[in-house]
């Protein structure tokens, strides 16, 4: 084989280090913020978290005169302030699933696992980066939603509640914590299912399909089981009041954290074992 005259030279690299968890975190941060789908999902999450409480507060305020006493008693200012969390959780969950399934659908996962063949650092880094980013980006919206809805409802004395009232700050900040955990749970589901449509469907089944089905069960069963479902347990983090058949905020929150940990643990085992 004759050697070509115009041989390409590969410049030597100045520095190549070993793979560390911190470096993988940095890489995952680059991956997260360099995609349009991330920006759109997070924007949707922020918008929905703020827009719904403002809309509900405005509607409540304008219809207050025509409401019955019973109907008025049913309104709770914190339910209004955090109404957006129930909606934006879908945007955050979709992004959580996409963070990992987007790599499988495009083939990026092969590049990722070639750079980090031990694989687990990738799962931990994705979880950490997405968790921190979603919490930091969702915290201002829940605070804005609380104070904005309170401002709109300022004419109605019984709908006023102080941020320093016991449990209020915990519920409002809890809204951002809940969204972060929903995202992490969805990420774990995505890593297990490895398919965007399947991941979103699985998440929707666990959060939106199974809970209403519980109502078909005998009431005693429903009361006994429902409170331990991921969505019900997680909801307690941002609920001010707790019924007889729901967990208190801390046990509920910790149970939801447990579900996230379990999902990630299953994902971790599968991630190491499965072929790519």
């Amino acid at each position: 084989m004759s050697t070509s005259a115009s041989v390409q030279r590969l410049p030597r690299a100045a520095h190549i280090g070993r793979v560390t968890q911190l470096r993988v975190v940095l890489s995952e941060w680059t991956k997260l913020h360099s995609l349009r789908s991330t920006r759109w999902s997070l924007f949707a999450g922020i918008f929905l978290t703020i827009a719904f409480p403002i809309l509900f507060a405005a509607l409540t305020s304008s219809h207050w005169g025509t409401m019955s006493a019973h109907e008025r008693a049913d309104r709770h200012p914190l339910d209004i302030a955090l109404a957006g969390v129930n909606v934006s959780q879908l945007a955050i969950a979709v992004l959580g699933v996409l963070v990992i399934t987007g790599e499988y659908s495009t083939g990026m996962i092969r590049a990722t696992f070639t750079a980090v063949p031990k694989r687990l650092p990738v799962l931990w880094a994705k979880t950490a980066v997405f968790g921190v980013v979603s919490f930091l980006l969702m915290l201002p919206p829940v605070l804005i939603a609380f104070f904005a809805s309170q401002a709109i409802l300022s004419r109605h004395h019984i709908l006023q509640i102080s941020f320093s009232h016991p449990g209020v700050a915990r519920s409002v900040i809890g809204g951002a914590v809940y969204l972060m955990l929903v995202g992490i749970f969805a990420l774990g589901i995505g890593a297990i299912v490895r398919n965007t449509a399947g991941g979103i469907a699985t998440f929707a089944a666990i959060f939106f399909v199974i809970p209403p089905l519980m109502n078909i069960l005998p009431t005693s069963w429903n009361n006994a089981i429902s409170q331990y479902l991921p969505s019900e347990a997680g909801r307690q983090i941002f609920s001010l009041t707790h019924g007889a058949h729901s967990l208190a905020p801390w046990p509920g929150g910790l149970l939801f954290v447990g579900y996230c940990a379990l999902t990630l643990a299953i994902a971790a085992v599968l991630l190491v074992r499965r072929d790519t």
Binding site: A13, R18, L26, K31, L35, G107, A111
Partner: peptide, 27 residues
């Protein structure tokens, strides 16, 4: 088989891989 996220720029793709090994932007 292609191993690149279709939504990411070539630069960011390479950067994300480089960062796992502490490889510089210059590289």
């Amino acid at each position: 088989a292609r191993s690149v996220h279709t939504g990411r720029s070539a630069y960011n793709h390479l950067l994300s891989l480089a960062q796992t090994h502490g490889i510089s932007r210059t590289r």
